[in-house]
């Protein structure tokens, strides 16, 4: 049993969006268009969320990398009528089975973090881009919901490799694309169940918090709040 989770240190995050591009490249997220963007229909598995507080000239702002929070008690799976979204008890990851999805969008409504994305249109991917498709991840199509999988395909590959070598999965062998490219090491990933892991220790830091904790969803994405602010 693992509980894969992430800690994002907002002191180290510079909102460069390297994680955004890397995630989308890794997971074959289709390019958007001006029209889709204007309608709010761009597919984004991870995005920057600015949060402004206060009034000028004393306003403050935080910028949070925002993706599926991989809740321990995810509201999205309770409303899915066909079992297309599910919770992996073995890994603690909230998954999505595209062929099962009937596009009812109950899950997008139920998700308090609004991180589930619906394909309102057939993705417009140029022929040349298809040559650069990551073969580990299937493309999605009109009428299905998609979201961050914590690069689950990387877990599958790492686990297969470990199994082939007759050993357990080692810490650091499974890392999502966003964490891998983070230039400032603001994102730390690992097994929250392993109390000696860096991610577990950081998740217990005094600076750690989770979004909308009062809802009882128990997200496995933790944020470390910025320091020194007066």
């Amino acid at each position: 049993m693992s509980r894969w989770g992430m800690v994002i240190d907002l002191n180290r995050c510079t909102a460069c969006q390297g994680c955004v591009s890397a995630c989308h490249e890794e997971n074959n997220v289709p390019p958007s268009t001006p029209d889709l963007s204007a309608m709010g229909r761009s597919i984004r598995w991870i995005d920057m969320m600015p949060v402004q507080e206060g009034e000028y000239p004393h306003a403050t702002m935080s910028v949070l990398p925002m993706m599926c929070q991989h809740c321990e008690h995810p509201p999205c799976i309770k409303v899915c009528p066909v079992g297309a979204t599910f919770f992996s008890e073995e890994e603690g990851i909230v998954g999505q089975i595209y062929p099962r999805c009937i596009g009812c969008r109950y899950c997008t409504t139920a998700c308090p973090y609004t991180v589930r994305q619906f394909n309102w249109f057939e993705p417009a991917v140029p022929e040349t881009y298809l040559e650069g498709t990551n073969p580990d991840v299937s493309r999605r199509y009109k009428g299905v919901v998609e979201k961050c999988t914590l690069c689950h395909h990387r877990l599958q590959k790492a686990r297969d490799q470990a199994r082939a070598e007759g050993r357990d999965l080692l810490p650091g062998e499974y890392t999502p694309a966003c964490v891998e490219v983070c230039p400032t090491d603001a994102m730390v990933f690992g097994d929250l169940e392993d109390r000696e892991s860096e991610v577990s220790k950081k998740s217990r830091s005094k600076r750690a918090y989770r979004l909308l904790e009062d809802l009882g969803t128990e997200p496995k994405v933790f944020y470390l709040r910025e320091g020194n602010r007066q």
Binding site: V20, A22, Y129, G132
Partner: peptide, 27 residues
């Protein structure tokens, strides 16, 4: 076919990291 890019962990400038531009550069 190039399918993904990541940072070179030995390179002193980025030590394995990439920004939005580098990570999207295959486009």
């Amino acid at each position: 076919h190039p399918v993904t890019v990541s940072g070179n962990p030995l390179h002193p400038v980025n030590r394995g990291g990439l920004c939005a531009r580098g990570a999207a550069s295959l486009q």
